[in-house]
Design a protein around this nucleic acid. Sequence first.
DNA 1: GTCTATAATACGATAGAC
DNA 2: GTCTATCGTATTATAGAC
Lengths: 197, 197
Amino acid sequence: MSARRQSDTRDRLLRAGERLFRLKGYSGAGLKELGAEAGAPWGSIYHFFPGGKAQLGAETTRFGGELYGAAWRAAFARFDDPGEAIEWVFLSEARILEASDYRNGCPIAAVTLDTASISEDLRAACASAFALWLEILGEALRAAGAPPEAAESLAYLALSAIEGAIILARAAKSPAPLEGTGRLVRQAIDRQAASWK
Amino acid sequence: MSARRQSDTRDRLLRAGERLFRLKGYSGAGLKELGAEAGAPWGSIYHFFPGGKAQLGAETTRFGGELYGAAWRAAFARFDDPGEAIEWVFLSEARILEASDYRNGCPIAAVTLDTASISEDLRAACASAFALWLEILGEALRAAGAPPEAAESLAYLALSAIEGAIILARAAKSPAPLEGTGRLVRQAIDRQAASWK
DNA sequence: GTCTATAATACGATAGAC
DNA sequence: GTCTATCGTATTATAGAC
């Protein structure tokens, strides 16, 4: 059906954007390459995203935010202890990077670094994705008994640390930054958690 | 003198690269714009960097690595306690971001995200810069009594956390990620440091 | 309403003037 | 040896064919 195929193509474009942006950055990914990657004809990009690359980038950022937000939620659903869940995400990311030969980074970080200083719309879209993740992390920590302020700062630490560690791991082609950092982030959480009980 | 002016122009090109890459990313920064920013004529880019943009990117990365490496060293020279020095760097970065309206990120991270998956040379250049910073951090921690393994993992944590926090701060246009994360990184260091004495 | 052909521009890189 | 003019190509965006 037409409506079905429309949303399929649109969805494939968003997925292709997410893949290419984390691979080559926002500016390094061309629209033609993106359309080809999605198996979509050239004109369909401007059919689904009349605002051009900026609109596709903003919606890709929203898409990626939901996608990885769901992954965070799944991790917290899987482990009772939020520290354990967060370290598991670090280790999972290390395995993902190894499997892709350290090519697949974070699409939101990639869009942020290329666009935050030149496009208010794209910067705001990235901020929304990060804010969603921080809220999921904070909620899980509060559910484990963390006071709101402690939950917020620990969420900042965990998200900052994993974003940075992904970059170090990609540059060095090594899982060590993710493994070492993940262990210490968990320790920081566990140490504070002792006083919540 | 000719030799003097040559190195001046070359140096201005490297500084312009460092500024533009952290502003718009590696792929988003054009060579023409970069030459204009440096006040250098168009041809001089290929005079000083026959390898073109890739060579300029790699040498800019080395340049930035030394520049910020010196800043890390200065912080450790200023404070006896490495935890205090590291938190000071987080807070300094927050002030720098505020002063630039959250435009000036880390040039090495920007080059890494745009190039690590497509250029082995540039990836390796970024890895060298990060390795230099990790070595400076590790050395300062060991000088304060940290065992080698603890120094290494704490250096990973501190560098990962500040790189990630810069990205979150830029996206949100807020100093909070740097302030909150810096405080917890310092706590993690201080807590371990108690057992070194 | 989809898609192809093309426009307008910016890119990195080079060749040639001085 | 320095710089200017230009090349070929890739970019984003649009217009028009079907």
